[in-house]
Write a protein that binds this DNA or RNA. Structure first.
Length: 430
RNA sequence: GGAGAGGUGGCAGAGUGGUCGAAUGUACCUGACUCGAAAUCAGGCGUAGCGUUAUACGCUACCGAGGGUUCGAAUCCCUCCCUCUCCGCCA
């Protein structure tokens, strides 16, 4: 959520910055709502003030045993008008709130202006693509050849966009997650957290998935007492539960920065992506991710994003995988993001780079929604900055390892850093 | 699933229809005393919105959440959520 004060003081400036990401801010409507809100709020508060002082007088008069009919008749009139204006005020503020929650974050100045993926900026390539002297297979062929990847059984159990892993492949998948967690906790200073996979609507609202993107989520209806109904949502990323740990909190200054890492499953309905990446494990309804989350002092967030990006990159470097870092353009960054770097890993079978991590700074956008604050050096509560990034998407990393470490006979050489997690095994073969 | 207790400022904890944004204690800040500290004494000390661009002033809202009664609600009524204790069941 953007700061409403900023919209009030520099509406055109905000509109201009949102325009760079293809969002049209209805400035006339905002202005109109604000004018009405201001008038009604002032009137309401004036009436409340009169009612309060009159009520106080009634109390005093009654204590002395005096007659109060005249003043009570007067305050009744105030009460009648107040009933109307209070309702109007609530409605107006709700309208403003809906409008405000529908506004995406403003991109940083450094974010290249562009309309789509095609305008993203490649920053660097790290490592080099492996050279094969045979026809490479993709991860589906490799996995099925090893007898460890089974989409048919997954389809029977659940449906499309699910997978079953078996044997060495299942273990390799687990090894990757363990390796990532250990690296981030031991070497990068993150605290591991275990969090709920079902969260309430307030948490989804806090990180920006709700109200706008409900169709991307799996909703789990839940009967509450006396016909009440309240939904749980399956998390689409650990970002949601982990970032919401600080919702409605005031963190002491000396505890900053907070750095958390969590390994969780992620659930996405993939509405609107029918027909995209239907083959293999690239785009699933359920996948595992190791997520890095930081809550930092506002002054520190640009540097923290660079560090966080480096932490994610380190995993690929240790795994010996070739990748590139891309700065997303204004038209391609996510709703809540002010700046996003994607890490794209080389997939030889597709002869292309595919996203394996997305690292973003949200500035105070999420913190404002969540009322996540810290106590600054003046002792006053101030909004935190939140950041997160995948470190990394486990399923896609498995795909990358399979494809990049394949041998001519269809076996897979296990990257050295993973071998301790594989009982010393050096190679996956049928 | 059953029974009971409870949710109030950073923390503890009083308040059961009006003078309560809220006693008191504690923590914290300032000052006095002191060479300095401790102890003691005095004062201050919630969040947010609006007027208003303003750490100053005024007004408004906030006592788990939402609704209701009332001229007036932390306090009374209704619904829900959460926490704790005991019993039952259970990975």
């Amino acid at each position: 959520m953007l700061d409403i004060q900023l919209l009030r003081s520099d509406l055109e400036g905000v509109a201009a910055r949102l325009a760079t990401r293809g969002f049209v801010l209805d400035t006339a409507r905002f202005h109109e709502l604000e004018v009405r809100r201001k008038a009604i709020q002032m009137r309401t508060q004036e009436l409340q003030s009169r009612r309060n002082s009159a009520s106080k007088l009634i109390g005093q008069a009654k204590a002395k045993g005096e007659d109060t009919t005249a003043i009570m008749a007067e305050v009744a009139l105030v009460g009648d008008e107040l009933k109307t204006t209070e309702v109007q005020l609530v409605e107006l503020q709700a309208e403003l709130q809906i409008m405000l929650e529908g506004l995406p974050n403003m991109p940083y100045e450094s974010v290249p202006v562009g309309a789509s993926e095609a305008d993203n900026q490649e920053l660097r390539r790290v490592g080099s693509a492996p050279v094969f002297d045979f026809a490479v297979k993709d991860h589906v062929e490799l996995g099925e050849g090893l007898g460890g990847l089974d989409f048919e059984t997954a389809a029977k159990i659940s449906g499309a966009r699910f997978s079953v892993l078996k044997g060495g492949l299942a273990r390799l998948h687990r090894a990757l997650a363990q390796f990532m967690l250990d690296t981030h906790t031991d070497q990068h200073g993150y605290t591991e957290v275990y969090v709920p996979y079902l969260v309430n609507a307030a948490s989804m609202r806090g990180t920006g998935q709700l109200p706008k993107f409900e169709e991307d989520l799996f909703r789990v209806p839940r009967q509450m007492g006396e016909g009440g109904e309240q939904n749980f949502y399956l998390i689409p990323t650990a970002e949601v539960p982990v970032t919401n740990m600080v919702r409605d909190e005031i963190v002491p200054l000396e505890q900053l920065p907070l750095k958390f890492v969590a390994h969780t499953p992620c659930f996405r309905s993939e509405a609107g992506s029918a027909g995209r990446d239907t083959r293999g494990m690239i785009r699933q309804h359920q996948f595992e991710k190791v997520e890095l989350v930081q809550m930092v002092h506002p002054d520190e967030s640009p540097a923290a994003l660079e560090q966080l990006l480096g932490h994610a990159e380190m995993i690929l470097q240790k795994l010996g995988l070739h990748y590139r870092v891309v700065r997303l353009c204004s038209g391609d960054i996510g709703f809540s993001s002010a700046i996003t770097y994607d890490i794209e890993v080389w997939l030889p079978a597709q002869d292309t780079y595919r996203e394996i991590s997305s690292c973003s700074s949200f500035e105070a956008f999420q913190a404002r929604r969540m009322q996540a604050r810290f106590r600054n050096s003046a002792g006053k509560p101030e909004l935190l900055h939140t950041l997160n990034g995948s470190g990394l998407a486990v399923g896609r990393t498995l795909v990358a390892v399979l494809e990049n470490y394949q041998q001519t006979d269809g076996s897979i050489v296990i990257p050295e850093v993973l071998r301790p997690y594989m009982g010393g095994l050096e190679k996956l073969a049928r």
